[in-house]
Design a protein around this nucleic acid. Structure first.
Lengths: 241, 241
DNA sequence: CACTGGAGTTTACATTGTAAATACCCATGC
DNA sequence: GCATGGGTATTTACAATGTAAACTCCAGTG
């Protein structure tokens, strides 16, 4: 991926059609590997992803992957980048906005879509060490940041304000979506119960919590997200002054 | 940690004085192990923490740890809990507040203090699967949540509002602090450079970014944190209505 | 045909988490 | 004194992992 590629490579047509039961043995390539990794984590969770298993998933021995990927850590970086590129596509597909408010809304929803679609991957997106110190998670793509800043510029934001907005925006998305994806993941699996060590959730000794258990349980993430987003936009309005 | 303990146990005096070069061989216990783990991660990073190395750090073989801790995963849960207990102490030490605004400020700053003190651990705090679905990171302690809700109650918040505030508060802290701690970690080490794969940060093709590199670099986390906090409080004011 | 270079495999090894068996030690029975 | 026993730490062992190095296989070129 040194040579950045749009949707053009050795395989434009026939996208996403490799099954676990190997097809006619198309030769490996980086994209195939990354896509397989994304899919694998989505299904089995990050902790189950090993080079050997990913290899098997692609009908190949583990070591074959190393010709296309420097190592596991970098593979994970690639996964993050891959997922965020999904975002980039979503975003640009969404038609033009008529106001900066709409623009921010669209961007926020696009990121949330990703987070909801890949709850097992999103924590990775959020915690991987940033490749540049000012590339704040979850917005890790230079291309994305560039286009975002451009967008703000087009709506008349001055550079300094744009940066501030970018920061608030990133913080907001990170907080909301990391929480939501964490919960989503939970619902899916429940891999290994950690109770009984350190934490015996005996609510009886926590009266305030018991009193509102119902409200606490209820996800309501979407509502909360929208509310916080509205609020952020409000805040940006002030920044613009 | 089933029997929760304040500062009282086999060792009240002489706190934190175990060096790598074993002392007179005090017998192991869970607290010692957890504290050692926290310290170890602070210094060497999570990825370097192995049972063997932690053992060595305590002057003991790896397997000795298993008498006090079920396994590595649970050890990490314990680390999180340990760090968050630090928060609990900080918070209660801080004297009483005279308004709910002050109260929220104090809590927020307490959490931030932790995040800044343990940047390598905070991502763990943020991403570990929650032991209860409504225990939102980074506020993972039942005790803490209970006391927080109690606090709000004392300032006249109605239950439903308290829950909403708790959520917004958690989201805000998670976003801000995860970003900040991520950056802090970066400055400390730089363990393994991931450049040259997927990401050759050649700014020349990103004009908007280049134009504001300076502003982007500059941390300014504290300022941003305070601003966002003010804003949250503003928002809570509205919620209270 | 021999040959060369790339794609995938085999083999190998150090490191990890952890189970099971063992050795150690100190306090109590006589 | 010595046996004994219960808890604490060590030893040994093993399967799983990431990855280096050598190897096999084969298509395409001279």
């Amino acid at each position: 991926m040194d040579d950045r590629m749009g949707p053009a490579g050795t395989e434009d047509v026939d996208a996403d059609a490799e099954a676990t039961t190997a097809g006619p043995r198309r030769p490996l390539d980086q994209m195939r590997i990354l896509r397989a990794a994304v899919e694998f984590i989505d299904v089995n969770g990050l902790s189950k992803l090993t080079m050997r298993r990913l290899g098997a998933h692609l009908g190949v021995e583990a070591m074959a992957l190393y010709r296309y990927v420097p190592g596991r850590e970098q593979l994970l970086d690639g996964v993050v980048e891959m997922v965020m590129d999904e975002l980039y596509e979503t975003t640009n597909a969404g038609g033009l906005s008529t106001s900066w408010q709409e623009y921010l809304q669209m961007q926020a929803h696009a990121v949330r879509t990703i987070a909801v679609k890949h709850p097992r991957i999103f924590p990775l997106v959020a915690t991987r060490p940033p490749s540049a110190p000012w590339l704040r998670p979850p917005l890790r793509s230079l291309r994305w940041v560039e286009s975002f800043l451009q967008g703000l510029h087009d709506y008349g934001f001055r550079p300094k304000v744009s940066v501030a907005v970018y920061r608030s925006f990133a913080t907001f998305l990170l907080g909301s979506l990391l929480l939501e994806s964490g919960t989503l993941e939970d619902l899916t699996i429940t891999e290994k119960v950690n109770l009984a060590f350190i934490e015996d959730d005996d609510l009886s000794s926590y009266p305030m919590i018991s009193a509102v258990t119902e409200e606490l349980k209820d996800g309501g993430f979407e509502v909360e997200f929208e509310a916080a987003l509205e609020d952020l936009i409000e805040r940006v309005t002030v920044m613009r002054s």
